[in-house]
Amino acid sequence: MSLLEINGLTRRFGGLIAVNDFNIEIGEHELVALIGPNGAGKTTVFNLISGFYQPSEGSIRLNGKDTKGLRPHQVTALGVARTFQGIRLWSEMTVLDNIRIAQHYRLGYSLLDSFLRTKNYMLREKAIDDIAWKLLEAMDLKDCANELPRNLPYGVQRRVEIARAMSVKPSLLLLDEPAAGLNSADVEGLIKLVRWIYDTFPVTIWMIEHQMTVVMSLCSRIKVVDFGTTIADGTPEEIQSNPTVIKAYLGDDTI
C-alpha cells in the first residue's frame, strides 16, 4: 500500500480551477519533487493534503485512510507535517517552545493533569522536552533553543521550521519551497539537511521547489504541473528533456 494516494483531486475557487484532476501515488521513503511555474497550483495541492482546503472533487488517502472532512490538526496527527512558503514560526515564543508545541497531538495528558501537575503530566512533558532537545541537537540548533525566531537569521529560521515539522514525527514531510530566499551557502546546507533527514528518519519527503540544483540533487522523482494540470512525471533526466516542460517554463517559440 502506498503512503499517499491522490485520485482525481480537483479544487475550484469560484470560476478558477486551481488544481485539476491531480493524481499521484507516493510510497514509503521516497524523495519526490513537485515543480511548475508560479501559480500552477502547487501550494494548493499541499494545502489540500494538509486539510487547510477541502477538495472540490477527488480523494486523498494517507495509508489507505481517506482524509476527507478532517481538520488540519487531525491530518497532522496522521503523520503529515509541512513547512510554509513564507516562514510561519510562532515568532514570540522560543525555538524550543516552537518545537514542543508541534507535538500537541500526542501530549497524552488532559487539562486537569496540567492543573494538578500529575505524575503522568510530568512524564509526558519530560518526553516532549527530550524529543525537542534531541532534534535541536541533531539539527545544530541547540545554541538558539532559547532565542526568539525573529532574532535569528533567515536560513536558521528555515531550519527551525523544518525541525518543528520533524517533531511531529511525520511519515510524510511536505516542504513548500524550502530554498526560497536562501543564499547559495544556505542552499548547500539545506540540501545536506534534507539528505540527512531522508537518510536518518523513515520519512517520505515531498517538496515544492524552484531551484533546480536542489531538486536535481535530491529527488529521484519529479512531477511537473501547470495551470493545475499534471504535464509530466518522471526521473530528473526525463523531465529535463521533456518538451512540454520546456515549453511551460520557457514559453512557446511559435509566437
Partner: peptide, 8 residues
C-alpha cells in the same frame, strides 16, 4: 500554523 502543526 498552529492548526497545521497539530494544535486543535
Amino acid at each position: 500554523a498552529a492548526e497545521i502543526m497539530s494544535v486543535d
